[in-house]
Nucleic acid binder design. Sequence first.
DNA 1: GTCATGCGCAACTATCCGGTTGCCTTTTCC
DNA 2: GGAAAAGGCAACCGGATAGTTGCGCATGAC
Lengths: 110, 110
Amino acid sequence: MSARRLKPKITAPIFAALGDETRLRIVARLSAGGPMSIAHLTRDASVTRQAVTKHLHVLAHAGLARSARLGRESVWELQPEPLDAARRCLDGISAQWDAVLDRLKTFVED
Amino acid sequence: MSARRLKPKITAPIFAALGDETRLRIVARLSAGGPMSIAHLTRDASVTRQAVTKHLHVLAHAGLARSARLGRESVWELQPEPLDAARRCLDGISAQWDAVLDRLKTFVED
DNA sequence: GTCATGCGCAACTATCCGGTTGCCTTTTCC
DNA sequence: GGAAAAGGCAACCGGATAGTTGCGCATGAC
């Protein structure tokens, strides 16, 4: 099992996008409430609307979110594929680590 | 199902630690090869030993890795709990998002 | 004893990043 | 038509961060 299957170059930007507290809160709100506008996201966000906008663009650049203009507001929704990629990456790491622990254990018992 | 269960304040630093390509490579190597020294990690790391050391300390600060001095070398190993926390966070987001999609679908069909 | 290896510490640099303020355009509502 | 709401664009700031180089200290090999 090669570490190449984890594709760090692809998944690292996804983790980086999730690695900010404000941004992770936005992702959580979008996942819980469904698609919503920037103003609605800003309502209880503790930061400015422009900050929220920047975070949304970061998420979009990582493929995690997507926007559509609807009248005068822009509605943002989550994109599930990158989330799945991140999950697969973590699963791979855990699996490899478990395998290593097993090997070490049997080696010691040997 | 509340978004509070995702605990962004706790999990965001973990994602941030995984959000650097060099660091994610280190995690992948540790998970695939088991505990190893800094020099061994540096061998094919494309950056300096000091850079690797800094990254390891970042991982340690996020609870993802742990070191033990063994003679003149310091051996680093992965810590699985934060990885599991990150996985649970992603699972929660995906589950919430799926639930929202279901609600929207039945709403449209209604 | 001596030399190479492994590592930590400190200083320095360049860049990125999160957040703000200010201003302007578009759309809705009355 | 005019006020207000939603949002884009740009400039700016302070702090974090990824990386380097240089040096000194222990430990293991011979």
